[in-house]
Design a protein around this nucleic acid. Sequence first.
DNA 1: TTTTTAAACGGGTACGTACCCGTATTAACA
DNA 2: TGTTAATACGGGTACGTACCCGTTTAAAAA
Lengths: 353, 353
Amino acid sequence: MAKKQNNSLSGVKEIARRAKVSIATVDRVMHNRKGVSEATKDKINAIIKDMGFQPNILASRLASKKMNRFLVIIPQSLENEYWEASEKGIDRAYSEIRQYGITLDKLFYDLDSRESFSEIIHQVSVDTYDGVLLAPIFFDEGVRFAALCKQQGIPLVFINSDIPGEESLSYIGPHLFKSGYQAGRLINYGLKNGEVLIVNISTEMDTYHHLLRKEQGFRAYFQDHGDVDLALFKLDIRDTRDEFIEKELHAFLQQHPTIGAIFVTNSKVRAVAKYFEKFRIEKILVGYDFIRENIHYLQEGLIDFLIGQKPEEQGYTGVMHLFQHIVMGAAIEKQNFMPIDIITKENYEFYRN
Amino acid sequence: MAKKQNNSLSGVKEIARRAKVSIATVDRVMHNRKGVSEATKDKINAIIKDMGFQPNILASRLASKKMNRFLVIIPQSLENEYWEASEKGIDRAYSEIRQYGITLDKLFYDLDSRESFSEIIHQVSVDTYDGVLLAPIFFDEGVRFAALCKQQGIPLVFINSDIPGEESLSYIGPHLFKSGYQAGRLINYGLKNGEVLIVNISTEMDTYHHLLRKEQGFRAYFQDHGDVDLALFKLDIRDTRDEFIEKELHAFLQQHPTIGAIFVTNSKVRAVAKYFEKFRIEKILVGYDFIRENIHYLQEGLIDFLIGQKPEEQGYTGVMHLFQHIVMGAAIEKQNFMPIDIITKENYEFYRN
DNA sequence: TTTTTAAACGGGTACGTACCCGTATTAACA
DNA sequence: TGTTAATACGGGTACGTACCCGTTTAAAAA
């Protein structure tokens, strides 16, 4: 069963023995510190390569006692299941790596307040951190913050939404355009007759911009499949209160009774489902995010498909990327798109966000 | 940036100081070894609880040098992408935990040969292992092996297919019935007219049994949704060669030209797609597994949906469960169903198996 | 040549825990 | 009371790596 190890022919000690130098010198080479002649450096590197030597991370972390500080800046998760999941993923990652000497600070901003974000990035001293995870909802401020990190040489990981041109360690999040494209397919596949309506529900301009990308993907699907010549209607709702949404929807659908399917570009699909329930409307309904109310309407059969964006995994992966890069010195994929998950009444119970 | 730790008010040393005993005694209590009086044991336990002490796993593993041996028994992955993925997941998990002093042996049997499996379980000395991961394709032999492990007190994890009544640490794999149910939904949602055909392609009885569970789920969907009164046809093909499959399919479809959708209960869906391609047939086609050929036909638009069973994750999770339980002493979920992933032409590029 | 100075390297200790081995303490029995 | 034997405990070393500090060696300057 559980036995003891035997090998003393591995590790830095063995390398030192083979190279006829001390452990300290091997160590210097491994961390490319100065104080080693080119000759011995080459010899040691050759031996390391030959042995396929992998340093013992346990011993390494134990001995170094190096502490790394990570900073996380995400929207408040209060009453927001999506960001709650994201934070959960962050916490899960943290619990796995804290024993490696990581500390993690979390800062939250208000999803509806650009100022709250601005405030945070002005108050925090980024240079006290070794890595930052950011959900850059607000574009301009995000750009400024990224520039700051770059200048300080601090690795920055984006989750949920990307700021393309900006330098960053990696992006982890959905491919908005293609998830909209996927929604197009799902609706086109099932639609027997009638027209299609796209609904954007948002008050903030920045978040609206994300919805537009999904809408573009959605429209692209129907353009690419012109065999079905279908009218695509669009409705922008600038208020997130249920009554307001209901009113706008109702007005629109009175005017366009032939609508057969609705695509809601975010998690507010629940409000549309609620409206459907109230007026006993049966249309194809597709929206976003694995959150309680949406799942409820999925069960009820009012929502046909939800597209999941894996916020939990985004948070987890984001922190892990920082860890892999900063602590383990590993190379990181620059673009890391989440899978476009299709959630239905039949498979939601097995779904992992 | 990266600084040093400061705390010397944690760890066994601090416990020893508070309890006015030596580190060795604290250690004895923590591993409940004998040689400690009840009084001091209680005192130390109280302090541990009070401090909320968590032993440093790094130091612990480093010092103990305890080796754990895991055994993995799965089908040969040669020319089988599904099991190839599974093995990849196992290897990924192994590479993450090997530094904790784990060694892992892999044994492979032939998916088409019950004897090859029988042979393995008779030759291996299970008692030299601390945990076993098994893909129990062959039912009876699986039962026997599970009994053996139970008798020896060795934790056993099943992946891919479960042996219900049997004692095991956990099961990790798909919910066959519900994945079939999901397929039913997908077909019913998209089917404009025509009838539905279920195709089982398998030569081995044991694997056929798994297909049956999916078929049952599929049928259940149509029973639960009687509003669509639809004929469900069924075709069993007992040979996995493409020509044979083509012939059987062709014969059947000549007789039943009104079939509008086909559900193939395993990864052999590629053969049906190939047939569709050859004869330029356009019907809804749903099948299983994220493997190269299937993806190809997905791209071509010949397969509409693939249901993924996450073999890579199954393998990974399986090994990790053993590790969590045996090394970390953590509690493990007994049932661990994989998500029922829906893969389409639009989202396959982001899919992770 | 001698002195200065930097480069190149080795010795040794520490990280937090595991566990061997030896000793002090106490109980049990002759 | 002395002897034995178990019980209770402490000292100390090891795990593999990091890194401080000191010493040797060689090159440059005097």
